[in-house]
């Protein structure tokens, strides 16, 4: 898949500036973030991929950006090569999910601007896109992992606006997850593999746990060395 890291249109930079201003970060802070972006510890290009960089909101936003890139690429492939026996309703739903994930990806890309990690190259060679159960099983893994990732990383976010934005996205991922689960096994929208049967809480996962799963589907490996995870 072609990366889009070189595409840095004026619109995205404008969007980023207004995003940061909205987030309550003053002009001085923007300069600081720009400096941090140039620092060697930030969004490092590693031997096998990228690192989300120094601890902080930019790293968490890049973490989210990485996951959204992966999801968008996955559903793009699902719709390009629909599995055997896909119903029109399933195709419509999966197309909507594709469009949501693409928008999430484009949103993070615009918000991060020059601080964004490059476009990632996926590796879906382990997924049989012609098979319904295999494809929906992978979709379930992506959605459930996405929900657990946002829930598990929320406390690492320092800015209130970013935290609410993560909240705005994670509930949509949970809506996707419930749909995909029901397509696989009717009634499994909040089953005990994802929702604790005692306290009714969705499971959450650390950055290290999530990236270990995500990297199975990525040629460009994503590391988070400052959050205790380096991709093998």
């Amino acid at each position: 898949m072609k990366t889009e890291s070189q595409e840095n249109i004026t619109g995205a930079n404008m969007a980023r500036r207004s995003f940061l201003r909205y987030a309550g970060i003053g002009a001085a802070s923007v300069g600081l973030l720009a400096t941090a972006a140039c620092h060697k510890d930030h969004k490092v290009i590693t031997s096998n991929g990228v690192d989300i960089g120094a601890t902080g909101d930019l790293a968490i936003l890049n973490y989210a950006y990485a996951l959204e890139q992966l999801e968008a690429a996955f559903y793009t492939q699902v719709i390009l090569t629909p599995y055997s026996g896909i119903s029109s309703s399933e195709k419509e739903m999966l197309t909507s999910i594709r469009d949501h994930e693409i928008l999430h990806r484009e949103f993070f890309k615009a918000a991060l601007g020059v601080n964004a990690i490059p476009g990632l190259t996926p590796d879906f060679s382990s997924i049989d896109f012609t098979n319904r159960a295999a494809t929906l099983g992978a979709a379930k893994a992506f959605e459930d992992t996405g929900v657990k990732a946002y829930d598990g990383a929320g406390y690492l976010i320092g800015g209130g606006v970013y935290l609410t934005l993560a909240g705005k996205i994670v509930s949509v991922e949970a809506r996707h997850a419930a749909l995909i689960s029901n397509l696989l096994v009717p009634g499994s929208f909040a089953a005990s593999d994802q929702v604790d049967g005692t306290n009714g809480l969705n499971k959450s996962a650390s950055i290290a746990e999530v990236l270990a799963i995500a990297n199975k589907y990525l040629k460009t490996k994503v590391s988070a060395s400052n959050y205790n995870y380096v991709a093998a």
């Binding site: 929900v147 829930d151 929320g154 509930s171 909040a190």
Partner: peptide, 21 residues
């Protein structure tokens, strides 16, 4: 507290999705 709130939030979204279906 934040993680629990986010986790309940996700479960409510799963419910909303199911009812909508």
């Amino acid at each position: 507290v934040l993680t629990a709130a986010l986790s309940i939030h996700a479960v409510e979204a799963r419910h909303a999705s199911a009812i909508r279906q």
